[in-house]
Design a protein around this nucleic acid. Sequence first.
DNA 1: CACCGCGCTGCAATCGATTGCAGACACGGG
DNA 2: CCCGTGTCTGCAATCGATTGCAGCGCGGTG
Lengths: 341, 341
Amino acid sequence: MATNRPGNDRVNLADVAKSAGVHVSTASRALNPATRSVVSDATVAKVMEAAGRLGYRPNPLARGLRTDRTFTVGIVVPDLENPLFPPLVRGAEGALGAEGYSLLVGNTDNDREHTAAVVSALVDQRVDGLILATAELGDGMLPALRNEGVTVVLVNREADDPSIPAVVGDDDAGVGLAVDHLVELGHRAIGHVAGPHRLSTGVARAAAFRDHMKRHGLDGAVVEAGWFQMEPGLAAATELLDRHPGLTAIVAANDLLALGAYRAVIETGRKVGAGVSVTGYNDMPFVDLMMPPLTTVRVPYREMGAQAARTLVAILGGAEPPDTVRMAPELCVRGSTAPPP
Amino acid sequence: MATNRPGNDRVNLADVAKSAGVHVSTASRALNPATRSVVSDATVAKVMEAAGRLGYRPNPLARGLRTDRTFTVGIVVPDLENPLFPPLVRGAEGALGAEGYSLLVGNTDNDREHTAAVVSALVDQRVDGLILATAELGDGMLPALRNEGVTVVLVNREADDPSIPAVVGDDDAGVGLAVDHLVELGHRAIGHVAGPHRLSTGVARAAAFRDHMKRHGLDGAVVEAGWFQMEPGLAAATELLDRHPGLTAIVAANDLLALGAYRAVIETGRKVGAGVSVTGYNDMPFVDLMMPPLTTVRVPYREMGAQAARTLVAILGGAEPPDTVRMAPELCVRGSTAPPP
DNA sequence: CACCGCGCTGCAATCGATTGCAGACACGGG
DNA sequence: CCCGTGTCTGCAATCGATTGCAGCGCGGTG
């Protein structure tokens, strides 16, 4: 009645070696592409055949113990339920899987203490590297990680220390796309519902808005929303429309703010699109199902995740850490923008 | 110019033992709660002090190599970008972290071959267990996993083999909540936009709809949508309203189908809520921002993920696999339902 | 013919923690 | 005074793969 452990019958390198009639070290070298060249072709063939026949799978624990590599990387996100992050994780998972790596995920709930706990759990698991998408990492966690010899790549965020590689969306270009689109449609009186100045994206997009308006010789009004949510967006857009009744278009720093702007426009008795044009940012799921469907800037989050993963793997492979990579966004033109009335 | 490896200075058990003046085996026993009792209190104190002082973190690779446990579990989902799954993953991650486990994620793109590859990558990584949320696992993958000695828990899905534990939402109860709510509001002519009969949720919710209608002594019309998307929902709801012009309410098998029903209702010149009531299923993000906000059944995906994780850990700890766990859904009443005109 | 070199394979140490077994020591009873 | 018993600690094997080093045999060269 002893518990049966089917796992015991796993074949190990010794089984393969015995079956091929060689020593385990020879088998190891034959199976490892990097050392294969020192083994004779005939022996390689024998070993490969035996490995295939027995269904040999190397034990990553034993390998890792010896080589100090786990072929595992961790990704840390603030909140998986925020639709921003799943594409990031998915992109990273896909790219890593293709390189033979597995992905551990950690969710921090935007809590500093929790973040530290999650990161150290990952480090304790001996991940080869870390992809960090958390907005704030207090207490110089980055230098500490560097001291521990952990390779880090940031995504959707940059560090004060520019030597840490990062993959981010190009906010300046994205806002430029929105502004250009509106100007092309004939809009001149354009306002901006900005994100909170506490967050770097809030600041960056507001600055980009002013710059691009100036480039067109225009002057744009800006009102800051307290948070990247619909209600603050409604409030900010209402204020914007109160102060500048002649506005014909609103560039929102975020899709949720744009939906807030929808409400504000409707409450002033005008229509979104035909009356006041509105653009968002991020192309969240379902914004194409709104009425009208939202014109917005799509940030290639999935590609950013994949790019961050590839960068990390390259560095682990000995490549030089690259500078910050800025991924080009794309404008999704839908029903919420139209020529001014 | 040799590369500096700060990782080399990691303290290991030998360092702790030396610093505490005991043998490594004694240190090991002192640090392991399960074996601690065989070591004298004084020695335990010495070892713990040394471990704390040196910042000792056990090497999970060495431990795992010896004990054949990695304290790692894998979760396999079809598509992380489907808003259903992030809460599942997040719930699992949270519950596992609390138990000292880490979570590896795999994304299958609903592709059978890819699924097999992802699962075997996870098994090769020697995960202690697997949480599977993939709808279809062809080719008796489940029995194969069992043979390999991998512990599996299903989530959001049941197996033909009832001995495999599963955590699912209670579709029957959920549809019951929607029907009861509508009947209570005074509706009698209620139709159902069903999901595809290929998928178990499609079948289950349609059956539940008929049962609950019958319980109220009513007879409900059902039209099947070809896929859980908005367009098929629009088509099915249009057909439903054509065939039964007297309908005052629609129960959709899914939020996207409900949004399709919105369009169908509007196209017949009526209003959602005041004219025809509509309910959804899942409470996806942003359906509360629709116009009108969607009344829908919330499935506790996060709790389901957490429950699956806890179940898995319990089984790994030697507990008996439980029967299928059905989690109770909850009705979110919003603007899309109202008394019939 | 002897020696050298080279290509290939085997030996054994190693990574770091766990654990069965046995030794050391103290204490109490016969 | 000796021995049994029980408590604690140390020894060494072990998990499975990697890798520096040594050895073997063969062929070529002086």
